[in-house]
Design a protein around this nucleic acid. Sequence first.
DNA 1: AAAATATCGCGAAACGTTACATGAAACTTA
DNA 2: TAAGTTTCATGTAACGTTTCGCGATATTTT
Lengths: 333, 333
Amino acid sequence: MKKETTVPTMKDVAKEAGVALGTVSKVVNGLPVGESYRLRVEAAIEKLNYQVNSYAQGLKSSRTYTAALLIPNTKTPFFSSLAYYINLSLLKRNYRMLLCSTDFDLSQEQEYVTMAQQNKVDGIIGLTYNPNLLVDEHIPFVSIDRSMGPNIPCVASDNFAGGQLAAEKLADLGCKHVAFLRIGSSLSNEPNKRKSGFENGCLARGLTYEMKILNDGDSFEEFEKFLKDHIQNGKLIFDGIFCVTDNVAWSVLKILDKLHQQVPEDVQVIGFDGIRMFGDQDYICSTIVQPLPDIAEMCVELLLQENMMPKPPLVCLPVTYAWGGTTRENFEE
Amino acid sequence: MKKETTVPTMKDVAKEAGVALGTVSKVVNGLPVGESYRLRVEAAIEKLNYQVNSYAQGLKSSRTYTAALLIPNTKTPFFSSLAYYINLSLLKRNYRMLLCSTDFDLSQEQEYVTMAQQNKVDGIIGLTYNPNLLVDEHIPFVSIDRSMGPNIPCVASDNFAGGQLAAEKLADLGCKHVAFLRIGSSLSNEPNKRKSGFENGCLARGLTYEMKILNDGDSFEEFEKFLKDHIQNGKLIFDGIFCVTDNVAWSVLKILDKLHQQVPEDVQVIGFDGIRMFGDQDYICSTIVQPLPDIAEMCVELLLQENMMPKPPLVCLPVTYAWGGTTRENFEE
DNA sequence: AAAATATCGCGAAACGTTACATGAAACTTA
DNA sequence: TAAGTTTCATGTAACGTTTCGCGATATTTT
């Protein structure tokens, strides 16, 4: 009746089955073992309700089958969907996910990296903002949306193409003079390329445009001022607006409503990200959709690839346009 | 120049500092050590850039400072916010979070529990649907929204009070005949109490009501049929609708729009959960708000409490009403 | 100043695995 | 049938910590 409350170990199983420790290990790991031995061990495992101790395995083999995901939070739709798909991709490879919410706090990002290293994760996927994040050489790291250094691959949407696509769509839908609303970022990250893509697209299609950038600390009210300043005779001078994110687009839609501008009749709005209501229902606006499942899969793929093939410094994945009610469905003159 | 690429261990630090292994351990864990020793060890740690190996610690001490969170997914606003706050509460206590997305799959829930047990997590918080989930006696478990057994505490919003509050609000806002739209659940979980709370509230305030329950497999179109069937002379016979979740409310709002019913002028709508746009902006509808931060804190509190105080079988936390544009702001006759 | 006591670093054992060398049995070969 | 070969379970040594009894100093007591 002693050690009744103890969790059974391989040793217990070995004793129960009357075999050596190593034999149990082999059975557990599916290595070749004599039929009779295997049956006895399996019976003992069943009887004692034995479960391997991943911590002992991890210590011995220094393979933990765990990856850490660093994102600002899980509340915001974009990040939470990303987390969802990355978890899915990890799970497919039998990996567990340690979730690290950094809340956009640069020092917390660093703390989490340190924690992850101590926790001997097999790799880290990070959507981070700390430009001089210290990551151990020995631990694989894949970055999302930000190039971090020569040996760290970066996965992102094709933001340039996305910006271009937005411009083309607006042109296709009959726009002539459009606005680009974005949030300032000191960081040189991939999403910044939406700007040049959009400019490029406008140029190619003969669209004229104006741009409003929010500075650090500015609230969305700056957008309201900007738009108000561009109303003549009760009518907005823009017939199209490209917003750098769906989040911005959402605010802009509310502002346009306040300013009595009809969407999409008076002005058409395109966002970026592909946020859906409740994560999987209707798009909240017409938008350039980021391929989150592909981004997730690519991150995990790059993180865990066994062969020592050189990892590409940047992978851009194709975006698509989705109608979400804030643009015309088709253009008719 | 040998073992250049190896991660330094305590042994290396001990050698570097010229002290014993145990001394390094004490320094690392903040246990009392002679000043001169401590300085030497700290210098060595700094020099070698040493970091503890949590897996070795976990194996030795069988304390991993890790908790698993089982939720259906992180895409849906309610779950992703929950994950966010639970992560916050865990972090406060220096715990890491293993995220387990079950996708409403009962067998996957079980697999994750097994995985968590093998991973020697210190506890599991679960919002699960498997009625006979097998959880090891030795591992603390806290359930959200579902009572799972005598020794497993359940944390939930005060769903009964929430239903009641919804009825009272509708009454306060001038409603006379209302509808309650819900999704069927074979499970006897806490959210089911929204029904009895609502009925109770209607009774107390003299509201008459009709109820529509979606069966398994039914789509939201059933709600559309139901509402269409209750239109007389182009006018819905309900002046208020209580939806069992904000998700249902959102669908209903779209249906009402299609049926040319004005919200909140013709009919007022109240949802349940407190979902906000982009996780922290405007409520998507008038709603009964679940206190997610408190629920998270309570779960973690119960999970990690050291003293062997008996854990309460059920903790219900107070809900609040929030205006979200789908009810009148005030009632004026 | 010698004995008794307190202080605190030392070294070994243990946590639950995996991997590898060992050797005993079962085969093949001539 | 004896020698050579293969097969495969065994036992032991790690992995990097923590813990704990031991004993060497340093401190107090008479």
